[in-house]
Simulated assay, not measured.
Amino acid sequence: MTNRAPLVWVTRTTEGARRTARAVEALGYHTLVAPVLKIQALKPIIDPHSFDGVIFTSRNGLNAFSSLCGRRALTAWCVGDATARAAGEKGFQPVISAGADSKALVALIRQTADRHSRLFYAAPAEPAAALCQVLCADGFQVSEAAVYETQSVVPRLNPADLPRIRHILVQSPKAGRAIAEALIAWHDKLCFPNLRFICISEAAWQGVEAGLRQSAAPEIRKAVAAGLDRRIAETPDEAAMLRLLETDG
C-alpha cells in the first residue's frame, strides 16, 4: 500500500470489522479499521423454557443470547439473511429470515407466526424500533430483555492516515454520533470536502450530521453548510452499503 492510497474507514465493532474490511478490499479499496463502538454483553435472567421462538435483529443479539441460553430447539426469527445464516450455524431450528429490516421482520411475524406461540426478543439496550410493543399490540405474546449494549470508544487513528480517508462506513445512528465526535477531534487533519459517508440508513446519516453541527470549528461548519457528500443504502444492510462502494469504484 502506498502512503497516497485513499482509505475506506471501517467503523463497526471489532466483532465484524475484519469481515467487513475483507469485503471492502475485495472491491479494490484499501481499508482503515478503527471501530467507534464496542459490544458489551449483558446478563439478564432468562428462563429458556418461557418462550417458543426468539427474535434477532442483529448478529450481536444472536451472539449475546447464545451465550446466555443453551436451548437451540427454537424458531429463530431473523432480521436478515446474514443473521439467519449465523443462527443456523449455531444450531437454531427452524430459522426464518425477513431478508430486510425490522419493519419487514415485524410484517413477517404478523403474517406467518402462530399467535399462540410465545416469543422472546433478544434486544439491544437501545433498540432502534419498538418491536416488542408493536407485536404485543397485535396480540402476540412477546417478552423482551436487553442482552447487549454498544458503547462508544475512541477510535485508534494514525494522524498520518487521516488525510487519506475518502469513504466512511456508518452503520447505525449511534455509530454516526461517535464518528462525528472523532471527526471533530481530528478536524484539522481532515479534508471534509473529500469525505463521502456510506450510510446504512438515513437515521445513521442524521447521527453524523447532528454530531457535526455541535462543532464550532469553522471548516466543519462550512462543510456542513455546503452539504457533506453522503450515500444512503437502498436497504439497511451491509450488502447494500458495499454496492454503493462498488459503483463508486
Rank of each mutant, 00 (worst) to 15 (best):
N3M: 15
L7D: 06
V8R: 02
T11W: 08
T14V: 14
E15M: 09
R19S: 12
R22W: 03
G28W: 03
G28Q: 01
Y29M: 07
Y29F: 15
L32W: 10
V33K: 14
A34P: 07
P35L: 11
L37H: 02
Q40Y: 00
L42D: 10
P44W: 08
P44S: 05
F51K: 05
D52N: 13
D52S: 03
D52G: 03
G53T: 07
S58V: 00
R59Q: 15
N63K: 11
L68K: 04
R72E: 12
A73Q: 14
L74H: 07
W77P: 07
A84K: 11
R85Y: 06
E89K: 14
G91A: 08
F92R: 03
Q93Y: 10
I96L: 13
G99N: 01
A100Q: 09
A104C: 03
A107Q: 15
L108P: 01
Q111W: 03
R115E: 09
S117H: 05
R118N: 12
A122R: 05
A123G: 01
A123K: 08
A123D: 05
P124Y: 06
P127T: 02
A129V: 14
C132M: 05
V134M: 13
C136S: 14
D138F: 13
G139V: 11
A145T: 08
T150V: 00
S152H: 02
V154M: 05
V154C: 06
V154R: 12
V154P: 00
P155I: 11
R156M: 10
L157W: 10
P159A: 13
D161N: 04
R164T: 04
R164E: 10
H167G: 03
I168K: 05
I168S: 10
L169M: 15
L169P: 07
L169A: 06
L169W: 11
L169Y: 12
A175M: 13
A175E: 12
G176Q: 06
R177L: 14
A180H: 09
E181C: 03
E181F: 09
A182F: 02
A182L: 06
I184N: 04
W186D: 13
K189E: 15
K189T: 12
K189S: 13
C191M: 11
N194S: 14
L195C: 09
L195R: 07
I198H: 02
I198E: 00
C199D: 01
C199M: 05
E202G: 08
E202T: 11
Q206S: 09
G207D: 09
G207W: 07
V208N: 04
G211W: 03
S215E: 02
S215Y: 04
I220Y: 03
I220V: 11
I220M: 07
G227C: 05
D229N: 11
A233H: 00
E234L: 07
T235F: 00
A240W: 03
M241V: 08
R243Y: 00
R243V: 04
L244F: 01
L245K: 06
E246G: 02
T247Q: 12
